[in-house]
Write a protein that binds this DNA or RNA. Structure first.
Lengths: 185, 185
DNA sequence: GTTGATAATTTTAAGTTTAAAGAATTTACT
DNA sequence: AGTAAATTCTTTAAACTTAAAATTATCAAC
């Protein structure tokens, strides 16, 4: 099995290694799960590498800026935590580093002094716009062999999967939050 | 918009927040990418939580044990790094912790004293078998609203995506490894 | 006006993760 | 046989990440 210059094709190991040999040992859900993990990790690893090499930044910082870029009026930290799907403590640290780089800024909420709203500085916007363009090109390139139609189908079916997961999680007993407060008539 | 007991449905924020409002600002590839991220993060977060609560362990440790479980004769550290899709340095640390827990053990390779092979202890196997069963049930439950047919389609199309990504990455210029060495006739 | 429950974020301790440098070993070349 | 290059893993420094406790603030109930 050779590529065009006669050398053996690279053999890639990843999270799916060894599944094909024992197909009955693994339910289809598990194989699907490992494939999702493999695909996202593959892409993430390459994005991380290119962000470091070309923009001297990290993937979590890029992710935070991406969320802030989409909301010009700024985002509360709690909301940022949810949108980035990371813990509050992690957000605090990331914000600190981006503030130090002059890319974002904090404002204490005028209506609730516990809350902090974070937004991008003009400088941050300019820097991010450049990274975002490159990032979009990379993603496009990664998916260049997948037809628009297949991408659309994947997007749609992953939406079904997402709803299934959300549904399964919401059937869990609530952990004593919000549901019992605010009894106002 | 209410669920069955009349309260408003929970509103979930995640990495896809804000995309629908500006569909033209984002290529389909980007939306697909963010959906993939959202799905995998959603599932990972819940698995992590249950592993901690029910088995007092962490997701990376579980992942390492899952790879070792599939290969009874043990795995070299470099190969483990590839199969787990994490760096060599990370693997070293994780191995150390699992060795300390008595779940896995190291053997220096007889044929190459640089290399270390890692395998599960009998105790580790027993512990992992239990976790693996629960884990498979969880994944099944998460995907319970997705038909077998749709899972099959997702698996297949994600395979196409994976190949596309691999292809895009292999078109990158090699970084001076193996390819330029070994001129032997 | 006071109080207890809740909310929003920070801090803490621990684990994970990366990239790069270092050490020991192996392999290829001369 | 000697040497240079490559390999395999460990160590290091820094960043990220989590869960839980702590701190500060808000708000509904009384």
């Amino acid at each position: 099995m050779s590529d065009s210059n006669g050398t053996p094709e690279a053999v890639h190991l990843d999270a799916e290694y060894g599944l094909a040999e024992n197909p009955d040992d693994h339910r289809s859900e598990l194989r699907l799960w490992l494939r999702m993990l493999t695909c996202t990790t593959l892409i993430e690893t390459e994005i991380r590498k290119r962000l470091r090499e070309q923009f001297d930044t990290t993937l979590p910082r890029f992710d935070m800026m991406a969320q802030l870029y989409r909301t010009e009026e700024g985002v509360l930290l709690g909301e940022l935590s949810q949108r980035m799907m990371v813990s509050n403590g992690n957000v605090t640290g990331l914000v600190e580093r981006l503030v130090q780089e002059g890319l974002i800024e904090r404002q204490v909420s005028e209506t609730d002094r516990r809350a902090t709203r974070v937004s991008m500085t003009p400088h941050g916007r300019a820097v991010f716009a450049e990274m975002a363009e490159a990032h979009a090109e990379w993603i496009s390139d990664f998916m260049s062999s997948v037809s628009e139609r297949d991408q659309e189908r994947l997007w749609s079916r992953l939406g079904g999967l997402k709803a299934s997961v959300r549904g399964a999680l919401s059937d869990q007993p609530a952990q004593g939050r919000k549901a019992s407060r605010r009894k106002r008539t």
